[in-house]
Amino acid sequence: MRSAAATARGATRRVPPDLLRLAPALLVTTLLFGGALLGALKQSVEPPLGGGPSTWSLASWRAVFADPTFLDALWFSIRLAVISSLAAALIALVLATLLRSRGPALKTTFSLPVTVPHLIVAVLAVAWLAPGGIAERALGSLPIGVVHAQSGLGIVLVYVYKETPFLVLLLLSVMGRTLRRREEASAVLGASPSQVLRWVVWPAVRRPLAVGSMIVGAFVLGAFEVPLVLGPNYPPTLATYAYQATQTSPLSGQGKAAASLLVAAAAAIALGLAALALARTEDG
């Protein structure tokens, strides 16, 4: 009797408590994040002033996609995202290979930029690399423009400095003892170091590397304060484009800003989901 009651209680307790535990976080995320996306969507379809009785309009979306500045911003943001994530991935791969057999102290040291805010990194980049900065004082002149460079090199540098450690940590997490053991097993079977690299190490790291790079790309797509500090005057990134839109015309700019931010958000989410899909095929 008692044991039956206990089992029954155990059975009813099994699934719901976990759902109950998840509920507050799910609810808050739905409210805040879902609310944010809805709010932005609402702003983007708000009818223009004096636009008649309709409750919504695609005017802002049309205006944005007809605006060459927006298209330049979109292209610029995508280019920055691709270059930053590729550069970070490449450097992270080299660093992780060098660091994997070293102690935890060195690994921790390399992962420290994670704690420094983007804005500070941007300030540092200005102090060092801007015209009249330390580098120019020490070397006389800089071979290439970084801060405010048309190419966006400054933005790329900041994101590479900030996000490479994240990728290194990701890579080191799959380059642990298990991988080392597989490498040993392959070596004693006659696989040369380059074969081990191609057939054992690369297959183990390629997916986390791709997934991490996509996440970095998503971050760069939303770049805002970094281009504000050291981006070029033109083109803007998607976020600075939105900011400029609200600054130049507080009323009609709101809809365009929301539309361009939604484009950035959609691109970032698409990248994130693609990364997830890639990570999933690895499990299967």
């Binding site: 053991r181 597989r182 040993e184 097993a185 392959s186 070596a187 004693v188 079977l189 006659g190 696989a191 040369s192 170091p193 057939w199 054992v200 297959p203 183990a204």
Partner: peptide, 20 residues
Amino acid sequence: LPAYRRRCAVVFQEPRLLPH
């Protein structure tokens, strides 16, 4: 000689197969 030239094959305690 490096490991891959010694012509020793090892069966380890764990199988150490390549998952991919």
